[in-house]
Write a protein that binds this DNA or RNA. Structure first.
Lengths: 236, 236
DNA sequence: CAGTGGTCTAGACCACCGG
DNA sequence: CGGTGGTCTAGACCACTGT
């Protein structure tokens, strides 16, 4: 008297929802081996390709694990991979309804410090452009940006008016697709960031660092330090 | 004399790589409209379904944007959605090569405080189990866990020996699939966390909070506070 | 070796939406 | 309206891997 899989005939989304329902309701508990694609397809009166797409998405989402010959198995420990979007600040601030404000606080050209040379694989005394900026939601500081641009890789940055254009936006327009490493961590506000954000020095703040390469060559490194109370949130 | 798209005949991955190459190398810059699926397929001598799969993945990754009738367009600002994995601590620590150590620091049953009732939609005076735990990599503290379990939803938690089993692992075994909200933020170490982690109070630490529901009912809420220097990193 | 998922194909119909 | 992507189908061959 087990209920057959309902063929709602709404396509692969329905198939996926059906299977997910069974898993959620314990019908197919962790470790359970699912019927083969062909079997599910036959049972629902649909094509195998449709079942495949549904199962493949469930695999990507970490709900099931699939191996040739071994079949499809419900994962015992769901993969805890959360997807946090790291949007362009302008968009993120605009999405809150506040007006986006950008201020260039400082600009200087200098030789790359050692840690940066190590990070970007730059030669000794490589010239870099250092920018210090503030992104704000109306009157409220939102994030402080410390940006380093390799002038060896991007000499045209010398001629750019970063008081008018935020570095991120210039970079997106100049080198839109590139390889990126992002990391996320907590830091105590240093005096400069604290002043920019209007918080006491030493405050615990969320920060991200992003290094960008293009064709294997390091272009830029940036640290964003967010206002207190900033959170990244996601559901799944 | 433009080079035709190479039909490497290695399947949709090759198609995707081809298209991605063109985008990376500026051949198809931001805002460019790509040929229609049928056109690309014909040009490469392959099936439209294969092209579709390649383009669909590029859309999911935020490289291109697709709309019916309007076609496929290279995004001007790539979506910077980074995927950070939030693994089970035991696995994360084991992956570093250190031995995983778990300690139950405190356990008590009490009425849920107001903030927790709000968070979990609990009635007044709802009983909860509060656990305080430490996860360590060998001798080094790794993360402090403050866990709240709704005893209305999970009364069987009363009988569990959390000195032997970490709450996460018991929960995964008990309610493996559920709805989760995760958030990530920075906080100054309170005295208890600071003591557990062996750092000065007030240190800036990365923390996550996770609330878990099952069939619309809140089960548990946990805050993990990580050791100083903890980073989440991802590449794309 | 045999069963399973991975992928491709050729064709089809539909939903959407810009001109 | 007509072109585009979204999806399904039926069939096929292949790659992998447990038994």
């Amino acid at each position: 008297m087990t209920a057959p899989v309902r063929a709602r005939s709404l396509g692969y989304r329905a198939v996926k929802a059906d299977i997910l329902d069974r898993i959620h309701q314990g019908d197919w508990g962790p470790g359970t081996q699912l019927p083969a694609e062909a079997e599910i397809a036959a049972g629902m009166g649909i094509s195998r390709a449709t079942v495949n797409r549904a199962l493949q998405e469930l695999a990507v989402e970490g709900i099931v694990e699939r191996r040739r010959r071994a079949g499809t198995v419900v994962r015992r420990a769901p993969i805890r991979a959360a997807r946090f979007s790291i949007p362009i600040l302008r968009d993120e601030i605009a999405a809150t309804g506040a007006s986006y404000r950008y201020v260039l606080l400082d600009r200087s050209e200098r030789a790359a410090p050692r840690w940066l040379r190590a990070r970007l694989s730059l030669p000794d005394a490589a010239p870099v452009l250092r920018l210090s900026c503030l992104h704000a939601a109306g009157p409220t500081p939102y994030a402080a940006e410390e940006r380093w641009i390799s002038l060896g890789a991007l000499p045209e940055a010398r001629g750019v008016d970063f008081a008018a254009t935020a570095p991120t936006e210039w970079l997106i327009a100049t080198v839109p697709y590139s390889e990126v490493e992002v990391s996320l961590f907590a830091r105590a506000a240093d005096p400069a960031s604290a002043a920019a954000l209007g918080v006491p020095a030493g405050s615990a703040l969320l920060a991200t660092e992003r290094t960008t390469w293009w064709e294997g060559r390091a272009l830029t490194h940036v640290r964003l330090t967010f206002h207190p109370g900033y959170r990244l949130t996601t559901r799944y």
